[in-house]
């Protein structure tokens, strides 16, 4: 073999296995990057762009400006809207988490004891979850209807109790909305908690039993510490879900009476579709994104780190 050929053949032969070990990933990832970029990143970037314009649904001169940002955030009704949103989110998230955990504990306990009906309980809870928000809102509107033939008030009257102003009392209406949201959202928390409970090593419970731990002690010192990650991840997910909830509210109260139940997502919807203020709606969407990210980071700070797991 001529020396020139020999010298060129050696590196090519050596490079072959190298190339096999480190394949080019870009062609494989490119479709995913394109899809994510086109359908997720581009709309997000466009929202940021719109927030710096005067865009309305009526067209006209968009013109770039920062005044939309300052004027939208300085609207006098915004603090009240944020207060309503905070109350709705806090009450919904904690109630969904507690109820979801309680139902999951009951279901797991029932399965261990081979009790009849655990599957029915799980399925019943899940039915509420698959009901679309708008339909859920309409169902609860019929139940909370304050007419003499309204669902819950009819039951109260049969029991001899006074009817309740579920939706027309500005101090009570928020709790009615929270009840409807918790009814719908609890199933998700139940599923997450159920999966996490199933993953706990039974040996831990056996060791606790050997040590003579009571049921509340097992819950406090074995179950809850083992569920910590699942609870925090669930809280992140349901917080974002609750912050974005507006379909159930719009069909139940429309945000009223007045602004009693107008949460940030519904307010954003109204700004865009009632006020035609596309730029203002974009600013409020970014505000929702910032709040969601901020809360997610707070929760994430409590997540167990590598060595704690």
């Amino acid at each position: 073999m001529p020396p020139a050929i020999a010298s060129s053949a050696v590196p090519r032969a050596a490079a072959l296995p190298n190339r096999r070990q480190r394949p080019r990933v870009a062609p494989w990832l490119m479709p995913l990057i394109l899809v994510l970029g086109l359908f997720y990143l581009y709309p997000v970037l466009d929202v940021f762009r719109l927030a710096l314009t005067r865009a309305t649904l009526l067209g006209g001169d968009e013109g770039y400006t920062v005044s939309t940002l300052t004027q939208t955030l300085a609207r006098p009704e915004l603090p009240g809207i944020l207060g309503v949103t905070a109350l709705f989110t806090l009450a919904s998230v904690f109630s969904q988490q507690l109820l979801g955990l309680a139902i999951a504990l009951v279901v797991v306990r029932g399965e261990k004891r081979r009790l009849f009906g655990t599957t029915i309980v799980r399925t019943t809870a899940l039915i509420a979850w698959v009901v679309p928000g708008i339909a859920g809102g309409i169902i609860w509107k019929m139940l909370f209807n304050e007419a003499p033939f309204g669902g819950l008030n009819s039951i109260l009257r049969l029991m001899g109790a006074a009817p309740v102003q579920w939706l027309s009392d500005p101090d009570l209406v928020m709790w009615s909305v929270v009840i409807s949201n918790v009814w719908r959202g609890t199933a998700f928390s139940m599923v997450v908690m159920y999966a996490a409970l199933k993953a706990i090593d039974p040996v831990l419970y056996e060791a606790a039993a050997v040590d003579g731990a009571s049921a509340p002690q097992r819950l406090m010192h074995v179950t809850l510490p083992q569920l910590r990650s699942a609870i925090l991840v669930n809280m992140i997910l349901i917080t974002i879900q609750t912050l974005n909830t507006f379909d159930a509210i719009i069909s139940l109260t429309g945000g009223g009476p007045g602004r009693s139940t107008e949460v940030l997502s519904l307010y954003t919807f109204n700004v865009v579709f009632r006020n035609y203020d596309l730029a203002g709606g974009a600013v409020l969407s970014i505000l929702m994104l910032v709040i969601s990210l901020g809360l997610a980071l707070v929760y994430a700070a409590f997540l167990p780190k590598g060595e704690d797991r």
Binding site: S168, P170, G256, P257
Partner: peptide, 21 residues
Amino acid sequence: PVYPEISNQIQIMMGKVLTGS
């Protein structure tokens, strides 16, 4: 063009007035 927002504001106002808040 401002009518839809006037209507929205009247609805909000009516809720506050009718509930006495």
